[in-house]
């Protein structure tokens, strides 16, 4: 086990990255989660730089979704801490964590089935100030659901629900976006659309942590990749290195090949 590294958590918001120094926006410190006898996340030191797109991969049960839920506060850790953008999130309620500038899209679509597309977007939007009607129109355009604004969410296709859910998370204008399998069950065209959406938001300065099994999609978007295995960080680095790594191929990528 590596010793916990120094955590360079950004203290002030909106400090321009000067020269070579890039700030860490998210850091977990020896984060651990036990479910009974099972250790789903085991002393993980996971840090993400501001402005990067980080993909989290690994076999089923590696602890990827659990790690996200520990960051958003759906689960509370057995040990360890979570820091984000100068805040110690450990012990904060989910809603307070969201207010520090985090958005999340869960693994299975969790749209409000009994509401229309526009109403779904209004739920996060009505907490924002300013021109919410403008943001609503802009978001509908961004997720290509303008024509279905008044359609009930239960009548959407799976891909449309995924896009709506990403749209709902985007309306909060977060500094950090956590996406759990954003393209699961999507066609190749839909996957490319989501990749474009993520890249355009990234160009606007948003940081991403994306859990994904679709390696083609990971190749399209990722700056760096973290491989989780049995609750620990197994490898971390650029996608080319990860894909060339014999051990990663053995534990995970081999399954997909």
């Amino acid at each position: 086990m590596s010793t916990p590294q120094d955590i360079n958590v950004r203290q002030k918001p909106a400090v321009a990255a000067t020269g070579g120094g890039v700030d860490t926006i998210l850091a977990t410190k020896r984060l651990t989660k036990n479910f009974g006898g099972l250790t789903a996340v085991d002393g993980v030191d996971f840090s993400v730089d501001e402005g990067e797109i980080r993909c989290l991969i690994g076999p089923n049960g590696a602890g990827k979704s659990t790690l996200l839920e520990l960051i958003t506060g759906q689960l509370s850790p057995s040990a360890g801490d979570v820091y984000f953008d100068g805040h110690d999130l450990t012990g904060m309620d989910t809603h307070a964590r969201i207010d520090t500038g985090i958005s999340v899209k869960f693994q299975s679509p969790h749209v409000y089935e009994n509401l229309t597309v526009a109403e779904n977007l209004r739920v996060p939007l009505q907490r924002a100030d300013g021109d919410t009607d403008g943001v609503l129109a802009e978001t509908l355009d961004r997720i290509a659901l303008e024509a279905k604004a008044d359609t009930g969410a239960s009548d959407l296709s799976h891909g449309e629900k995924q896009r709506l859910e990403i749209g709902m998370a985007v309306t909060l204008d977060p500094a950090l976006m956590l996406l759990d399998e954003p393209v699961a069950g999507m066609s190749i065209e839909e996957t490319a659309d989501v990749a474009n959406l993520i890249r355009s938001l990234h160009d606007d300065g948003m940081t991403f942590v994306v859990v994904e099994h679709d390696m083609e999609f990971v190749r399209q978007i990722s700056d760096r990749v973290t491989v989780l295995n049995q609750g620990s960080i197994f490898r971390q680095g650029p996608i080319e290195e990860i894909e060339a790594d014999e051990d990663v191929r053995r534990i995970y990528l081999g399954e997909n090949a």
């Binding site: 759906q74 809603h95 307070a96 969201i98 958005s103 869960f106 509401l115 209004r122 009505q126």
Partner: peptide, 24 residues
């Protein structure tokens, strides 16, 4: 009004509504 929308969001899905920053 907007409070009604918040109530309905809580009724439909509490956990999801918390992830939009609402204190459920």
């Amino acid at each position: 009004g907007s409070f009604g929308m918040t109530m309905v969001a809580v009724r439909e899905d509490e956990a999801r509504t918390a992830t939009f920053g609402y204190d459920v």
